[in-house]
Design a protein around this nucleic acid. Structure first.
Length: 345
DNA sequence: TTTCGCGGACATACCAGTGC
DNA sequence: GCACTGGTATGTCCGCGAAA
């Protein structure tokens, strides 16, 4: 059978000779890409969209003071923005077009994420019974409202959605806030998998052989190797929106009136406070997520998170074997000679 | 929200070189 | 001539991202 010819492109052949490889990817494109990365790993929303680009960078910023005031919260986000911005965009960040490009990236990624969750990925995020109720806003409200924390109106107070007493955030929920089960619903991890690994990302996620696309995907494009507090907060907000009556993913729900920007801030603040204060539940939570997504990631002390005890023990013995190996007393020049002779032979 | 070109990763076909 | 090996070209999959 004759083979079909595939069209091959050699873009570099057409590039002007004066344009080096660094400039061929424009600053605008790289800034937009940073905005996408920010949305995935740091936050769905800015704390204050207007203030963040005009704020001066505090070089001595201490993350432990992050929650003292709104200005320190904005400063914390600014630090995250600076960390992800291309080096040559940092000094130009007050120029309007840089901020616009970054926002474009965030907006594009936010829109793509919401579309993916409600459409191509939905079959991974809801079981057969629930899938039938995703068709209309009212159907979602009737069937899922309790799951996302709906509290009906009383004689003295109006209806609202509880931020933390929402069963959808827990792997086990007994009616009260329980940090040992918070943000552990597999749905949240599946949502994050859709973001990191494409529409079919949840496939085999909780097995030893999770699905990896044969294509570039966010995890690789942005070299994401650890779970961030922002990513967990994002997944929690998106889980609530997914099962909500809202038809669009806006800062404030167009049907539920849930303030998703505020939700994001509440979740990420509790996580970061816990991280700063070295709370056991946050450490265990991050370990749990890393164990699912990045089981081979190195921990700060060199131990592999998520690897089995046997594998860790063997790795330690291997390290000892290399460290305790006898040193060569022969002078370096002779060493080289010996290696050359062996190689030549 | 949909469409479509792009391009990285992987699988596979093809080909030249080598040894028997 | 055949089997095998390693390098290269091509086909396919499928997610990204810009444009409509």
């Amino acid at each position: 059978r004759p083979r079909r010819r595939r069209k091959r492109f050699h873009r570099a052949d057409d590039a002007p000779a004066s344009l080096d490889s660094q400039n061929s990817e424009t600053l605008e494109d790289r800034t937009r890409k940073a905005g996408r990365h920010f949305l995935i790993d740091e936050g769905l929303f800015f704390i204050d969209e207007g203030a963040i680009w005009s704020l001066n960078v505090d070089d001595d910023f201490d993350y432990s003071t992050e929650f003292n005031s709104k200005s320190t919260r904005i400063q914390a986000q600014l630090q995250d923005v600076i960390r992800l911005l291309p080096d040559d965009a940092v000094s130009r960040r007050t120029e309007e077009w840089i901020g616009d490009a970054f926002r474009d990236g965030m907006g594009s990624q936010r829109s793509a994420t919401a579309y993916r969750l409600r459409r191509p990925s939905l079959k991974h995020l809801a079981d057969a019974t629930d899938l039938k109720h995703f068709t209309t806003s009212s159907d979602r409200f009737e069937n899922f409202k309790q799951r996302i924390g709906y509290v009906p109106a009383t004689d003295t107070a109006g209806a609202y959605y509880s931020a933390f007493k929402a069963p959808i955030l827990y792997d086990e929920f007994a009616g009260e806030i329980d940090v040992d089960h918070l943000f552990r619903n597999p749905l949240l991890l599946n949502i994050h998998a859709c973001i990191l690994r494409g529409a079919d990302g949840p496939t085999n996620l909780f097995t030893d052989n999770p699905y990896r696309p044969q294509a570039p995907y966010m995890e690789k494009i942005h070299n994401i190797t650890r779970t961030s507090t922002g990513a967990i907060a994002n997944a929690a907000v998106l889980a609530i929106w997914l099962y909500s009556a809202d038809t669009k993913f806006l800062e404030r729900g167009n049907e539920t009136n849930i303030n998703y920007r505020k939700r994001y801030r509440q979740y990420v603040e509790e996580l970061r406070k816990g991280l700063t204060a070295k709370k056991a539940w946050v450490d265990a939570l991050l370990n749990y997520w890393d164990g699912v997504f990045f089981p081979d990631a190195d921990d700060d002390d060199g131990a592999a998170r998520g690897a089995g005890d046997g594998e860790n023990a063997e790795m330690e013995s291997v390290v000892d074997a290399f460290a305790n190996a006898p040193s060569l007393e022969t002078p370096p020049a002779v060493c080289s000679y010996v290696i050359c002779v062996i190689s030549y032979s």
